[in-house]
């Protein structure tokens, strides 16, 4: 096979893969809508997915959020007052925790924990012919396997992002008491004055988009496994690498739209 043929075959393969992924995404959206409107069997799967992705990741998210808030407060209170801009600490907190790093770090945590888990689980289901069994019995595997995971991951990412913000913004108050003690009312007033509805909406939109990206990429790569068990870790790795890349690109696009 010549070089031209190889390039042509690779391009055709890429295009077909892209079209397949787009078709998969459309099918997931369609089946998710049907799952929401006629939710019966998969509700337990959804609950367990939120439990695994959301509740079990809460401790990690809370720890990271508190640590990040503490670092921002300590660094900010040591630097900003030197320029007479001590009140900017709340703006920095909101920009970092609510607008930028909160949704992204939460999504990275969910990708690392749940993205790999979903890819591995679906890959194992393919290897053990469970997917074929669904298809043989006339059950749509997208609706009954992918849709609850899509909703669960998206919802969990959103909720974890909310917790991340709450822990990051309020938890930093605890750290502030060790560095520069101020009354809770004053802290809340300063923070709430700096926090705008646009920040909250931006954070919510980002977390929903990030959750959808994680779920789509994880389920897609999980279902890409064909027959060998050695494909499962490869799918998990691809799920994480592609997921984080897409998260950063999506974050840049949403931030750009937000500032425009």
């Amino acid at each position: 096979m010549g070089a031209i043929e190889r390039i042509g075959a690779a391009t055709i393969g890429r295009v077909r893969g892209l079209l397949y992924a787009l078709g998969f995404m459309v099918d997931v959206f369609k089946q998710t809508f049907r799952f929401v409107t006629r939710r019966k069997v998969g509700s337990r799967v959804l609950t367990m997915q939120v439990l695994f992705t959301g509740v079990e990741a809460l401790s990690v998210v809370a720890t990271i959020s508190l640590s990040l808030g503490a670092v921002i407060v300590i660094q900010g209170l040591s630097l900003l007052p030197q320029f007479g801009q001590g009140q900017l600490i709340f703006d920095v907190l909101i920009i970092v925790i609510t607008r930028e790093l909160g949704p992204l770090l939460t999504a990275v945590i969910v990708t690392a924990r749940s993205g790999t888990a979903i890819s591995t689980e679906l890959g194992n289901m393919v290897i053990s012919h469970e997917i074929e069994a669904y298809v043989v019995t006339g059950i749509n595997p997208i609706r009954h396997i992918v849709a609850p995971r899509f909703i669960g991951v998206t919802l969990s990412t959103l909720l974890l992002n909310l917790y991340f913000n709450i822990f990051g913004l309020l938890g930093s108050f605890v750290v502030t008491q060790f560095v520069n003690p101020i009354p809770l009312g004053e802290y809340l007033n300063g923070m709430l004055a700096s926090l705008s509805l646009t920040d909250v909406v931006s954070s919510v939109v980002k977390s929903i988009v990030f959750g959808a990206i994680i779920a789509l990429i994880a389920t897609y790569h999980g279902l890409q496994v064909e027959r060998a068990t050695t494909e499962i870790p490869v799918a998990a790795i691809r799920s994480v690498s592609h997921g984080i890349t897409m998260l950063i690109i999506a974050n840049a696009i949403i931030t750009l739209v937000y500032y425009i």
């Binding site: 609950t47 939120v50 439990l51 959301g54 509740v55 809460l58 919802l155 909720l159 909310l162 917790y163 709450i166």
Partner: peptide
Amino acid sequence: VGVFVILAVAL
């Protein structure tokens, strides 16, 4: 999960 969701929404 219910507590997890309700608490986040309430906060």
